[in-house]
Each structure stands twice: as C-alpha cells, then as structure tokens.
Design a protein around this nucleic acid. Structure first.
Length: 808
DNA sequence: GAGTTTGAAACT
DNA sequence: CAGTTTCAAACTC
C-alpha cells in the first residue's frame, strides 16, 4: 500500500519496505479530528505541566523521545506511504522532539531534568537546522540527513511561519517522500541498525507505552511549541544559549503554544496542513504507544536513523560550535543524550531525576557562568566566591578545562554518570572532575545522587527535587530556573564596585561578568584582565582566603565518603563563619545557609537557627537528621531545642567522629550530616554556591597554604578555638587521609593553618586539647573531602589564577 | 518594580 | 583590632 501510494517501488527485501509494512498497520489507531487533535494538544499542555505525574512522565518521555524522535522522523519518512500519516508522524516526531527540547531547555534553565540536559545539546546543534521549514518538511529529502531536530521544533512554528511549505509539502509530499525513502534506504544500508540502541529504544518505547500515551502526546505538543521556539531562538543567539534559552523557554513555551494555535486558525492552508499532520500524528503516536511490538520495530529502524541523525547533529554542532564552548556543549549534549537515554532505560527514573536535578543545576550554573566568562576568556578567575562554591564547580571546570562547556558537561555528567550520561560525560568530565568520575565509577555517584535527591525531597523549602521537577515540569523548572537559572542569569548587579570587589559575586567567584550580569561600569571582563588580576591580588594580599569558597560542599567531595561529604565546608570563608544577627541564619543573608551548610563553631552568628545545622548543635542535629532525616526542614527548631553547650558540640563531634572514622567524614563536625539537606537547598535555594564542588576548587587551597595566616586572624569563639584547633587538626587529617601530597594541598584549607604541623596520622596536634582530639577524629573525615578537593583545587587554582592571565 | 533589610566587604 | 561605612544581595511590599 504505502509503496504504491508513494509512487515508487521499494524492494520487499529492503529494510525500508519492512518498516513500511510494519508501520502501515499502525496507521490510524485512533480516529481523531485533526483540528481537535491539534487543539487538544495545545490545551493539554498546561494540564501536563500542572500534573506532577505528567511531569514525571515527561521526563521519561523526553529522554526516550530524543531517540524515538529521530526514529520517528525517519519512520515518518518511511511511512511516507500515507501522506497523512507521514505528516502526522512527522508532527508526532516533532512533538516528541519538541518535548525533548523543551525539557532540555528547562533542564538547562531549571537544571531539574536530567534528560533535558542532553537534549539541549541537540537543540543547540539543531539551530542550524531550525531555520528552514524545509527541514521541517518531513518530505524533504534532506530531512533524513540532518536536521531532524529543527524539523521537530518547527512543527508548530512551521505551521505558523511556513504554512506554505507545509501545504506544499502536503501537495508535493509524494516526491519528497520518495526522496526520503531513498535516503532512508540508503541510510539503512549504510548504517546497519545497532542492536543496543534498538534495544534501548525499545525499552524507551515500552516505558513510554507504559506511560499514558495521552499525557505523552499532550506533553509533546506543549514541548513542541516551546522547543520549537526555544531552539530557533537558541540558534539565533548562540552566546546566550543557556540563559537566553531558559528565558526564551519560559516565554516561548507560552508563546509557542499560543502561536501554534493562532497560526492554525489564521492560515487556513496552514490549518489544513496542521490538521493533516495532526491526524497523522495522532494516528501514529497512538499506534506506537498502543503497539509496543510495532513501535519497537519502528524504533529499531528509527534507532538506526536516529544514530544517523545524532551523528548528523553532532556534526552540525561541530561545525557551528567548533569555535567555542558552545560547540563543545552541543557535542557533549548530543553524546549525553545518547548515553542518557540508554541510562534512563536502564536506570530507574528516580535516580535519574535526582541526579538530573543536581546535575542540571550545576549545568545551569555552569552554563551561565561559564558562558559569559568562558566564552570570552576561558577562565573563571582563580578565586571562588560564595557563589563560586557553586561556581566552584564551574570554576573548577573552567580552570581545568577552561571551557565552560566542558565544565557544564562535567557537571551534568555527574548526575548523568549515574544514569545514562555517564559514559559520554565521563570522558569529557574526566579532566575537571576526576572525583566525580571516580564516584560514578565506584558507584558512589549513585549514592551522591541519591543523597542529593534525598536532600531535595527532604528539604521542602527549597524544592522537592525530583518530585518538583517531575511533578509540574514548568513550575518546577521555573522554580529551578528562578532559583538556579535566574541566579545564573542574574549574576551580579554591581553598580559602584565595578565588579572588582568581593561585593561582586562574579568577581568573588573568579568569573568574568557576562551578559546575564546587570552590572554597571564593570571592569570584571577579559578586556580588563590585568586590572582584575591586580585587584584580585590586592584582595588576596589582604585576605588570602578572600576568594576561597565560603562553603565547601561535601557532596562534591563526597567522592569516597560520598554521602558524608556534607561535612565540611572547608572553605575559608565558611570556616570563618557567618556573622548573622537578625537573620538567625535562616535566610540567604547567611552565607552558611546560602551555601547549604550548617553553621560552625567559627560562626559568630547570634540566635543561629541554621536549618542545615546550628552552630552549636549542628553535630547533634546532624545525627538527628540522619536518624530522622525527614525533619530536616525543621532542623532549626531541633537545633533550637538542643542546647548549645560546647559539651554537646563536643559530644556531637565525637559521634561524628565515629561515623566519620569509618567513612572518612570529611565533614566538619557541624556539617557532617547536614549535607543532605544542603544539597536540596542548593538546588532550590541557591544552586550556585552550594551546587558546585566548590570544595576542591576554591583557589584558596593554593592560597590556603600561604593563607594559613589569614585563617589565624579569623575570629574564633571559645568553641571556635576548640573547633579551630580541631579544624586544624582536621585539615591535617585531611592531608593525612589523602595519601597523596595533594591532600596536603587540601590542608591548605583555612583549617590547615594549624594543621600544617599536622600529622597525617589521626594524631592531632598536641596543642589542641582533648576536646580537640575528639574533633580531630571527626576531622579526618573532613580532610578526605578537602583532600579530594585539594587535589583538584590546587590545579584549578593555579590554573584559574593563571587562567585569567593566560586566557586573555 | 521600588524600597527596605541584611550582613559581608571595605575602609578608617 | 575595632568601629564605621559601603556595597550588593536578599527580602518585603
């Protein structure tokens, strides 16, 4: 049938023929009015976002869709037999694609979705494709070759923007289809299907099938609109990719949906085409969903095609992006997507979601940060500010790779590693985040991810983490976007500091100001590197720890201990502690809270109610958290309840020590168990700082050694003294822990000052008193974290510091 | 979006 | 080193 309709004969033996046959039966499972179908899609969109379930499904879809889309496209071309079907398929594919893209965008922006991360790359690559409606045309011979994404994205847009083409397509679909068939057949011949991919695809489809087809469809439609616009826009402005995309996504999503509808109504011709396309889509999609077997078959074929398409995308991305990071990202993303999808199939959605969240956040932050800074000058400045903790990850990446893109990938990869991404990302990341890789390789990643995830779930205030993300994608995404994304986009808003003081988050983070910044009279730009460096030096001379991450996240360091990672904060600033008086350490005014870290002894805060851990009761709280876990949100109250006595603290420390001793708690006594909570907070609250690996990266590690003196100056309270000693001890422990000298570097952490003498062994410096000893035990764990970090950090730091100079 | 609050950074 | 001022983010309305 199909063959005849098309007008060209296809050998029965040819894979294409088999495809067609398989597809033909699928045809119109559901008879849906094209118009209604289209409309239904549009309206459904909001519902999708609203329903958390839908979101979850979406995430799955996205991942799956990315593959399926390609396959679908191709399949659609295969389906050419039925003009309607072909268009419908194309539309469906596009829809799915769009969803993928949209999610991706969201993920980028929001950093919530795992899958999204990968897809964005594709989208990025797509840009080249987007422009043309032709690409859009399923029938276009070129369709197979390249720009599947663009086509997909275009679906709605095309209708509105290039209705003529659509019409033309419908009319002249036969010829194009023929061409498509030929191309497809060629592809099939040239590119034998990969079993693995097929299997994966099949899995995806199965999953999709399991999911509600309706939800999927609806979701897709929404996504399509968003994705379509988003990608196109993205393509247009490569520079703004992340931030712009996010923003565009938000606006686009709404607009796109609106446009699509409007366009349909506006142009009769368009509407017709749409209807046809929709009909086809509806028919095909349902079929696919309904018939797993068929879908699988198609998928397998599609997979092959997909593989081709991905390669194409990759190629495109290279061409387009070859110059800069963007290209890198795209590449990575593409790879990630492939890997990701696989992982998704394999791994449970939960882990992915959790991981994705973190990773996404990181990515978002990285992207934002990196883009501006990296694009121009690779580098982030050596120093890491509070933000930088989050940035730190970025900064690390930057420092290490100097390519923001890479860093972003790395970040993403972290979570991804757990999931599908790991493979692709791991390679790229390897440079920057050895630790992360290690974790992933060891399976620790999973733990970390889980931890993160748990945290998210636990921390209500910040966000629900996966649930949020999955739940209502838009809302969640927006939240994340608002939080992470917006933060990343916002960046600094300096007016008088010229972005050359620590007031400037960018400067503090060691990053050049970029587009997202709304600063005035900014000198924190590659052009003024010298000035920036000089200023940095001045500030560092004044306070060696000035650029040290305020808070070090354990999670990142978590590496080996992983979960416990939270432990320490290590950054000099954090060690220095906050000085909150009115915020009770319950608001972002508090650096500790902002960093998602509990207050430590070094903090001079008053009425500390830090949810992550009180100054005094932190340790205890941490234990409670561990036990209770659920109440993390209420830690403050708990803490409040708890007495602040030093004795308690010591006791806590001891407890921690016990734990840490086993796990190597890098955790500072206070922070030790909070971390989980922190992570979530980071994601929701301020991803930037917390999210990152800050620990290792902070430049201060380098400085730290020199800085040690600086640490000394830090005010210490009674407890602080003990703590400080303990910390110092800790740092040495860290050093100890790290068999490698690198650990020693880590010791550079402010704590080290005193630590320097430290013995690698657990032995604390004698100077510290018994209390100290206890602390020391706890400390060791902490060091581990720092140790890892230190290794990276020194590298980074040196690089970063040099970076600015070298980069320019 | 404007204004206020907050606490770190910078200055004296 | 302590106190004050400056600054920009965080927060509120």
């Amino acid at each position: 049938m199909c063959i005849k309709l098309i007008g060209f004969s296809v050998p029965e033996d040819s894979p294409v023929f088999s495809f067609i046959n398989s597809l033909s039966p699928i045809q119109p499972v559901k008879s849906i009015d094209p118009v209604h179908s289209v409309q239904s899609y549009l309206p459904s969109i909001p519902s999708i976002f609203t329903s958390p379930h839908a979101n979850l499904r979406e995430s799955r879809f996205l991942i799956r869709n990315s593959f399926s889309d390609f396959s679908k496209h191709e399949s659609s071309s295969d389906n050419v037999d039925e003009s309607n079907l072909s268009t419908g398929v194309l539309n469906a594919v596009r829809l799915s694609r769009c969803t993928v893209i949209a999610q991706e965008n969201c993920s980028i922006i929001c950093s919530l979705n795992e899958a999204t991360v990968d897809p964005p790359d594709e989208c990025a690559t797509l840009p080249g494709n987007l422009p043309q409606p032709e690409q859009y045309d399923p029938g276009s011979p070129n369709h197979n070759i390249a720009p599947c994404f663009g086509i997909k994205m275009d679906f709605k847009l095309d209708i509105g923007h290039a209705p003529l083409e659509l019409v033309h397509f419908v009319q002249n679909g036969l010829e194009r289809r023929k061409n498509l068939f030929v191309s497809e057949t060629e592809f099939l011949e040239n590119h034998p299907p990969e079993q693995n991919r097929d299997e994966m695809v099949g899995c995806e489809w199965e999953n999709l099938i399991s999911d509600d087809a309706d939800s999927l469809l609806i979701f897709d439609s929404n996504n399509e609109s968003e994705a379509c616009k988003g990608p196109s826009e993205k393509l247009e402005d490569s520079s703004k990719l992340a931030g712009d995309l996010d923003c565009s996504q938000k606006t686009q999503t709404n607009e796109s949906s609106g446009r699509c509808v409007q366009t349909a109504s506006q142009d009769p011709s368009v509407s017709c085409s749409k209807e046809n396309g929709k009909q086809d889509e509806t028919d095909h999609t349902p079929q696919i969903l309904s018939d797993t077997c068929q879908s699988q078959v198609v998928l397998s074929d599609l997979i092959e095609k997909t593989a081709n398409g991905t390669s194409d995308h990759i190629r495109l991305g290279h061409k387009v992006d070859s110059q800069q990071q963007r290209g890198m990202r795209r590449r990575c993303l593409v790879f990630d997507t492939a890997g990701f999808s696989k992982k998704n199939l394999q791994n449970s959605s939960n882990l992915h979601s959790s991981a994705s969240l973190l990773s996404n956040e990181k990515m978002a932050s990285d992207d934002k940060c990196s883009r501006p800074g990296t694009s121009h000058s690779p580098c982030v400045l050596p120093g890491i500010g509070l933000h930088l903790n989050t940035l730190a990850t970025t900064s690390k990446d930057r420092l290490i790779t100097q390519e923001m893109l890479v860093s972003g990938k790395q970040l993403i990869s972290m979570p991804c590693s757990v999931g599908p991404f790991a493979p692709t990302t791991s390679g790229q990341k390897s440079k920057s985040l050895s630790v992360e890789k290690d974790m992933s390789s060891n399976g620790n990643e999973v733990q970390n991810l889980q931890i993160m995830h748990d945290d998210a779930s636990q921390v209500p205030a910040l966000g629900n983490g996966e649930e949020l993300n999955q739940g209502s994608p838009k809302k969640k995404r927006r939240k994340s976007e608002n939080g992470g994304e917006s933060d990343a986009c916002k960046r600094c808003n300096c007016k008088k500091s010229k972005c050359l003081k620590l007031y400037c988050e960018c400067f503090a983070a060691g990053v050049y100001c970029s587009e997202p910044c709304s600063c005035q009279g900014c000198f924190n730009k590659p052009i003024h590197e010298e000035m920036v460096l000089a200023t940095r030096k001045q500030i560092e001379s004044r306070n060696p720890l000035a650029f040290a991450p305020k808070v070090i996240r354990t999670s990142e360091t978590g590496q080996e201990t992983g979960e416990d990672a939270n432990k320490t904060p290590a950054s000099a600033r954090h060690k220095r502690g906050c000085n909150c008086k009115k915020s009770n350490c319950l608001k972002k005014y508090c650096e500790c809270y902002q960093g998602g870290v509990g207050c430590s002894i070094s903090c001079r805060c008053e009425g500390c109610k830090n949810a992550f851990g009180r100054k005094e009761g932190i340790v205890l709280i941490g234990a409670e958290e561990i036990e209770q876990g659920e109440e993390e949100t209420n830690p403050c109250e708990r803490e409040k309840d708890k007495p602040d006595d030093d004795g308690q603290q010591h006791a806590n420390v001891k407890i921690d020590e016990n734990h840490s001793s086993e796990n190597v708690l890098s955790v500072t006594p206070l922070q030790t168990r909070r971390p989980p909570v922190k992570l979530p907070l980071f994601s929701s609250a301020k991803p930037p700082r917390s999210s990152t690996l800050s620990v290792g990266f902070s430049p201060w590690l380098f400085t730290s050694q020199p800085i040690r003196k600086s640490e000394i100056p830090l005010p210490q309270h009674k407890l602080e003294k003990h703590v400080s000693t303990a910390l110092e001890d800790d740092t040495p422990d860290i050093l100890r822990c790290g068999a490698s000298p690198s650990n020693g570097v880590k010791t550079a952490s402010p704590n080290r000052k005193r630590v320097s003498p430290p013995h690698n062994g657990i032995g604390l410096s004698p100077s510290r008193k018994g209390g100290k000893k206890l602390i020391l035990k706890s400390i060791p764990s902490f060091p581990s974290l720092t140790g890892d970090v230190c290794e990276d950090y020194p590298m980074n730091y040196s690089n970063s510091s040099f970076c600015s100079s070298t980069c320019s």
